[in-house]
Design a protein around this nucleic acid. Structure first.
Lengths: 234, 234
DNA sequence: CGGGAACTTGAACGTGATCAAGCCTTGTGG
DNA sequence: CCACAAGGCTTGATCACGTTCAAGTTCCCG
């Protein structure tokens, strides 16, 4: 991880003003001038795949906005297992619990190389109080977290393994941009859906045989979206 | 349901100032004077058991604070089933999605007779902008929703039926006050845990045989808290 | 090319779903 | 006050699905 925003010599600083997430992230309501004023304490970090962004129950001084990549929030279970409770994509915010509490509620790990901005709690709180647009954006983010959590309950923790997997693939595809998406490991899929790694593997294999998905080199897939939607029903 | 706060003749209006939830609900930061000024558009409702407070996807003009009782938020599944995604207790807020959106995301139904205050979106938004304490309270409520949703994923949708049921009973017991708590129907338990009504019934019966719980007249239980905790592990 | 991790596959087992009765409680009308 | 109907709860028998444990296999990286 390297830091940028706090380095006065970093010419990339200006990039924040044109940052491609700027339009839909926390500070979208700020003028370039305002933006510049608060950039000082903000760090831009690269989080390599599988790196831990923060650990559950550790002190939580900062929130993070995701500029690119994919991040999972997981919870460690008493019996040694783990459960993934959220997937964050570009534009999402991680660690908002710092705004009303002391510690992180999850462990955040990059599923794909990620690019994040680290923002001290105080900066967000101050902006939240002074700038209505930021405040509005913050409320939206919070509601978004709730919606995503609900989606995990309703879509990814309900019904047969087959139905859950279909819904997961559809959810991943919703990233929008490309028609194909990179796939998490079978182990992560298991932790996402509340099933074992083996079952995840079997279901994916079966989907492949039926021609519902197609795995190219590496980890990308193309869908028979209609067929998956049918399976997702239950 | 009868209305109170909007009725000028309602002497109970003063009760809001001494309302027992006042200390830990949205408006805890307001003076009695401020409180009085905003009371006008607020309705106090009684929601009988099994009554619907609001319907999923319907227009959402208001948020509701729960003063007493128990409310479930459920989602209807494409295949006809339903899944309960949250349980609200006194002090919780329902329908916060109205603050950033147009429609309710769940159907809210009273599990026990409930007493709620209905507050128009505009009132909350205005207070949120003008009163820092209200704003702070709102953020806490939002985070609380997220935490509760996470709990449903991690505790109530993970592991064997037995473990889930144990965690549910512990969660219900956490209401705190009495040592015994009223139990939801077997059907609701199923919808809470993502299992069938029959399995819910079997597990409860088995718990009873083992002396882990005890069901008195009506729908109240007393726990062997230690034993349940052991089962909850996995 | 070799070693390791992730993935795949198989066979046996166990848990929960399903379908189908029966039972108990509650409320209603004769 | 009893009888009966209705809905929720319980229980049983069977079956399917997912877990578990144990090999293989493939892929990737050094």
């Amino acid at each position: 991880m390297k830091s940028n925003c706090t380095n006065p010599a970093w010419i990339g600083r200006a990039e924040c003003a044109v940052c491609d997430v700027r339009g839909f992230v926390l500070f979208s309501g700020l003028s370039t001038l305002e933006l510049d004023a608060i950039l000082q304490p903000i760090d831009n970090l690269r989080v390599p795949q599988n790196a831990v962004l923060y650990e559950q129950d550790s002190a939580a001084p900062c929130v993070y906005t995701l500029r690119s990549g994919l991040i999972k929030l997981k919870v460690d279970l008493p019996n040694g297992g783990r459960r993934i409770v959220r997937l964050l994509r570009p534009g999402d915010v991680a660690g908002m619990e710092t705004l009303v509490g002391e510690r992180y509620h999850h462990t955040a790990v990059a599923l794909q190389d990620a690019d994040v901005c680290r923002i001290p709690r105080e900066v967000v709180l101050r902006l939240d109080q002074t700038n209505p647009a930021v405040h509005q954006a913050l409320m939206r983010r919070w509601q978004r977290s709730v919606d995503q959590a609900d989606h995990f309950i309703v879509a990814l923790s309900t019904g047969s393994a087959e139905a859950r997997m279909a819904r997961l693939l559809i959810t991943l595809g919703c990233t929008g941009s490309q028609p194909d998406t990179s796939m998490p490991s079978r182990e992560d899929m298991g932790a996402l859906l509340g099933i074992t790694t083996e079952t995840a593997s079997r279901v994916v294999a079966e989907f492949r045989r039926r021609g519902l998905i197609h795995i190219e080199k590496g980890d990308c897939v193309a869908y028979d979206h209609a067929g998956l939607t049918r399976l997702a029903q239950g």
